[in-house]
Amino acid sequence: MSAISIGRLRGGFCVYWDGPDGKRRRYQLEARTRAAAEAEGRDRYLRETGTPEGLTISAIWTSYIDHLGAKPTATTMRHTGKAVLETFGQLRPDQITIKDCRDYLRKRIADGRKVGTVHTELGHLRSATRWAAKLRLIDQAPHIELPPKPDSDVRPMSDAQIRALIDGCGAPHIRLAVVLLLATGARVGAVLDLTWQRVDFERGVIDLRLPDGLTRKGRAVVPMNRMARAALESAYQARLTDHVVEWAGERIKSIRKGYSAALTRAKLTDVNIHQIRHSVAVRMLAGGQSIEAVAQYLGHSNTAITYKTYARFLPEHLADAAEILNFDDLRKVK
């Protein structure tokens, strides 16, 4: 938190900052380590600088982002906060009602936003207020009503589309990223985060997990298939950085432009990059893999997520059950 500083006072730690009147505020802390003092100092700052009536959503939102640090959710909340804080920013948590949440949903839908987007925005509001309640910065978190999260409308890609996409990749690093997305079913962030240290050619596995656990999204350890091994071995010989997907000796943080160019060359439209992950899951299920195996491969912590998202693409798995419901032969029974 940039507003505060941690110092030493009477053999321990203290937190201090400059108030709006220009005078320095300083408070002794109970913490006995620097890390504990940083956390306690932030809490003390929030308590001391809150309005007499309590902290506003704007203050809580900013502090929660700071608490998240380098986690991807912090970056996302800087974007979702633009809309959320416009409506809720000046309110205290205890002032928020279910009607406010429903009014917000209607307003955002009227503005052309999808229900899924609003679900994410209000979900961030819920997370921030629950965090504040957990730290006892507020008495209790308000009930934030979320709209039902819609089923994904992303369709799996056909084999012809996948082949065209691979062939449409111009730059080597774009092709490598797409091949890894297809071979692992990972999210694009996991592929771009992948380092050579987590690629084990001897065991034939790719560890997509981050060692510091910065992301909430599940990441798996997956076997290295023939396609992935060929691409990785070629890239390993030409490596210039610790990251697997690189270009000109620099780590790649986004393949948006390269992926878009590949779609243009492949003459594909409306093929979102996340569609690759869906295609991988559906292909595995169609090949006879169990829901449990697919869930583990995708890094899902709960197989219910896999069922909800992908089972609808495979109505044929209920074919035997459907046969039981043939009632047209009942007239033959005497």
Rank of each mutant, 00 (worst) to 15 (best):
G12P: 15
I98M: 06
T97E: 06
Q95W: 04
E250N: 07
I144P: 10
Q161R: 00
G19R: 06
G258T: 06
A286T: 08
V84G: 00
R229W: 02
I65Q: 04
V154M: 12
H79I: 08
I96M: 01
H124F: 04
W131T: 01
A266S: 04
C14M: 13
R256P: 02
E202K: 05
L182W: 11
F88V: 05
V221C: 00
F88C: 09
G81A: 03
I57V: 11
V271L: 11
I98F: 02
R277Y: 00
V280I: 03
L85V: 05
Y310K: 00
L9D: 14
R113Q: 04
I206H: 07
W17Q: 02
T184A: 07
K334L: 09
V271M: 06
N272Q: 15
D328H: 12
Q90Y: 08
I96E: 03
R175N: 02
H274S: 09
L46H: 13
E48S: 11
I305Q: 13
E323D: 07
G54I: 06
L146M: 13
I324M: 15
D111R: 08
R203F: 14
G258F: 10
G116Y: 08
A281Q: 05
Y236R: 11
M77N: 08
A160E: 03
L214E: 14
A171H: 12
R216I: 04
I273H: 08
L263H: 01
R26F: 09
D103M: 10
P172F: 02
D207E: 13
G287Y: 07
R163D: 10
L208N: 00
V199F: 02
I276L: 11
Q197K: 11
P148T: 12
E250P: 01
L135M: 03
R34S: 13
A39E: 13
W61Y: 05
T309G: 07
Q289L: 15
L135T: 04
L314Y: 08
L46P: 04
V221P: 00
R155N: 12
D153H: 04
M284F: 08
I273M: 12
V271A: 01
N302D: 07
H124T: 03
P148C: 09
R219T: 07
W61N: 01
A164Y: 01
S5M: 08
E86W: 06
K23H: 07
E38S: 06
A293W: 02
V205E: 15
E40F: 07
S301H: 15
L318R: 11
N225K: 02
E30P: 01
K217E: 13
G12F: 11
K308R: 12
P148D: 05
